[in-house]
């Protein structure tokens, strides 16, 4: 786990990791969220709607931002204060995602880092773009 302080960060600094979405993750997210919507749970329904398979929950994909900031950028001192996310393409079980965060703004007065987030799939297509607002623990 990284442990950057605010002072150790600079604009443009980035971290990334890869993760493959599994059926177990979908099951866990269903349990946590209670979201039984068929788009995420019924393969036939999703295909009828024009998708290749059932679609991974957008918020499951978004949840990888938690690891990005809590483990890598800044890591241990992270105090997540806000997240914005836009979903650009569907994610399917088995997709391997690359989650990348880049420091976009540093506000010294309030010790907040604004981190631009891009999540791409194995075909280098962006599936999510977003922003994380991060404060710092002592």
């Amino acid at each position: 786990m990284n442990n950057y302080s605010f002072e150790q960060l600079s604009v443009g600094q980035s971290e990334s990791f890869e993760v493959t979405v599994t059926s177990e993750m979908m099951d866990c997210f269903l349990k946590i969220s209670g979201d039984t919507n068929p788009l995420h749970n019924d393969e036939e329904f999703a295909i009828e709607q024009g998708y290749e398979h059932k679609v991974v929950y957008g918020l499951l994909t978004t949840s990888f931002i938690s690891k990005l900031v809590g483990v890598l950028l800044p890591g241990e001192k992270c105090l997540l204060q806000g997240v914005e996310a836009k979903y650009l393409k569907p994610v399917y079980v088995g997709d391997t995602l690359t989650v990348t965060g880049t420091i976009d703004e540093l506000h010294e007065s309030v010790k907040r880092a604004s981190i631009k987030v891009i999540i791409s799939n194995q075909n280098d297509k962006k599936v999510l773009k977003g922003k994380a607002e991060v404060g710092f623990l002592k």
């Binding site: 506000h107 010294e108 007065s109 010790k111």
Partner: peptide, 24 residues
Amino acid sequence: SLEQINLIVAIENEFGMMFDMAEV
């Protein structure tokens, strides 16, 4: 306190200036 941070960040971005911690 969280909205205070949001306010300061929005003000810095809108006016194109940075404050130091003591000022705010």
